[in-house]
C-alpha cells in the first residue's frame, strides 16, 4: 500500500486558520470526502445515460406497448430534461428514496438496509479471521527471518494472493459442505451460514496482511531504537511487544481498515457464490436482470460506504502516526 500522499511543495503553515492543526486536517479530509461522495452520486446517476440504446426498452423488452414504455419512463423521471432529472435524483437521495426494484417492487433502500446486516456481519467475521491469521503469520515470519517458518509463511502468502476467490469458495464448499458436511453450502439463516464465506474472504486477505506485517516489522526491527531497547537488556519478547509492534502495525491497521471498505461492498463474488442475501450479490442480481434502480442504489451505497470507511482509516492513521498530523 502506498503511503498517504501529501501534496508536494505546499505544507500548511502552522497557525493558518482558526482551528488547531489536527482539526484542520480532519476538516479538510471531511470536505474532500463529501466532494467525492457528490462526484460518485453524479457518476452513478450518469450510468443510466451511458447504457447504449433505450434503457426502458431494454428493461421491458422489444414487445412492450408504447403505453407501458411511457409509463415506466415517467416513473423513472426519464421524460424530464437532464438537469431536472439530476435535481430530482438528489432530492430523492436526500429523502433516502432510491426508487423501487422493477422486478419485485420492493423499495431499494429498504432491501439494501436488510441486506446490509448480512454484509456487515460477514465483513466483521472476515476481518477478524484476516487480522488474526495475517498478523500472527507475519510476526512469526519476521521474527524467525530466513527460517523454515519464514519460508513456509511467505510461500503460503504468495499462494494465497494467487487464489481466485470464487474457486476457493467452491473448494471450501465442496470439502466442508459436501464431503465433510460440517457447514451449510449456501443461503442464509444465521451466523452459521457465514463461516465458509468468512473464511474464504479472510484467508485471501490474510495473505496480504501477512506480507505487509512481515516487511513492516522487519523494517522496524532494523531501527536504532530497537537496538537501544535490546542493549538496555530488555528481553526479546519485551522488545517485540512493547517497542517494535507498536510502530510496525501502523501500516497493517491501515490495510485492515481499507480491507473493511472492500469487504463492506466488494465481497461481490463471494456473496454471489454462497448465495448470501448481501449488498454485493444484490448488485450482481440487479445487473443480470437489468433491474436499473437496484444497480443504481446498490452501487451508490457500496461506493459511499467505501469512501467513508477509507476516510475513517485516513483519520485513524493520522491519530496513530504523529508524522501525518497537520
Amino acid at each position: 500500500m502506498a503511503p498517504r500522499r501529501r501534496r508536494a511543495g505546499r505544507s500548511p503553515s502552522p497557525g493558518r486558520g482558526v482551528l488547531p492543526l489536527r482539526y484542520q486536517f480532519v476538516a479538510r479530509r471531511l470536505a474532500q470526502g463529501l466532494l467525492v461522495l457528490i462526484g460518485v452520486s453524479i457518476i452513478v446517476f450518469l450510468m443510466i445515460h451511458m447504457v447504449p440504446g433505450d434503457p426502458v426498452r431494454q428493461m421491458l423488452g422489444e414487445r412492450a406497448t408504447p403505453e407501458a414504455v411511457a409509463a415506466l419512463r415517467r416513473e423513472l423521471g426519464l421524460d424530464l430534461p437532464a438537469h431536472l432529472q439530476l435535481a430530482r435524483f438528489f432530492v430523492n437521495l436526500g429523502r433516502g428514496d432510491l426508487g423501487r426494484s422493477l422486478l419485485t417492487g420492493v423499495p431499494v433502500a429498504q432491501e439494501l438496509l436488510q441486506r446490509y446486516r448480512v454484509t456487515i456481519q460477514l465483513a466483521i467475521y472476515a476481518l477478524l479471521i484476516e487480522a488474526f491469521l495475517g498478523v500472527t503469520a507475519g510476526i512469526l515470519a519476521a521474527v524467525r527471518r530466513g527460517s523454515a517458518t519464514d519460508y513456509l509463511t511467505t510461500s503460503v502468502a504468495v499462494l494465497g494472493m494467487s487464489l481466485p476467490s470464487f474457486w476457493l469458495a467452491l473448494a471450501l464448499m465442496w470439502l466442508f459442505g459436501f464431503v465433510l458436511g460440517w457447514f451449510p453450502i449456501s443461503g442464509y439463516q444465521g451466523a452459521y451460514h457465514l463461516v465458509l464465506p468468512a473464511f474464504t474472504l479472510g484467508i485471501l486477505s490474510a495473505a496480504y496482511i501477512a506480507r505487509v506485517t512481515r516487511s513492516s516489522l522487519l523494517e522496524v526491527l532494523g531501527q536504532d531504537y530497537i537496538r537501544t531497547a535490546r542493549s538496555k537488556g530488555l528481553s526479546e519478547r519485551a522488545v517485540l511487544y512493547r517497542h517494535a509492534l507498536k510502530n510496525a502495525l501502523i501500516p497493517v491497521v491501515t490495510m485492515v481498515g481499507l480491507d473493511l471498505g472492500y469487504l463492506l461492498g466488494g465481497a461481490i463474488v463471494t456473496e454471489t457464490v454462497f448465495a448470501l442475501p448481501g449488498v454485493g450479490s444484490y448488485v450482481v442480481k440487479g445487473i443480470l436482470t437489468r433491474d436499473f434502480p437496484v444497480v443504481q442504489g446498490g452501487v451508490l451505497v457500496v461506493a459511499a460506504t467505501f469512501v467513508m470507511v477509507n476516510l475513517m482509516v485516513d483519520l485513524l492513521y493520522g491519530s496513530l502516526d504523529p508524522r501525518v498530523k497537520g
Binding site: V36, G39, G266, V269, V299, V302, A303, F306
Partner: peptide, 9 residues
C-alpha cells in the same frame, strides 16, 4: 473519484 469504487464493483 475513480478509486472511490471498489475495483471489482
Amino acid at each position: 473519484l475513480w478509486l472511490a469504487f471498489p475495483t471489482m464493483l
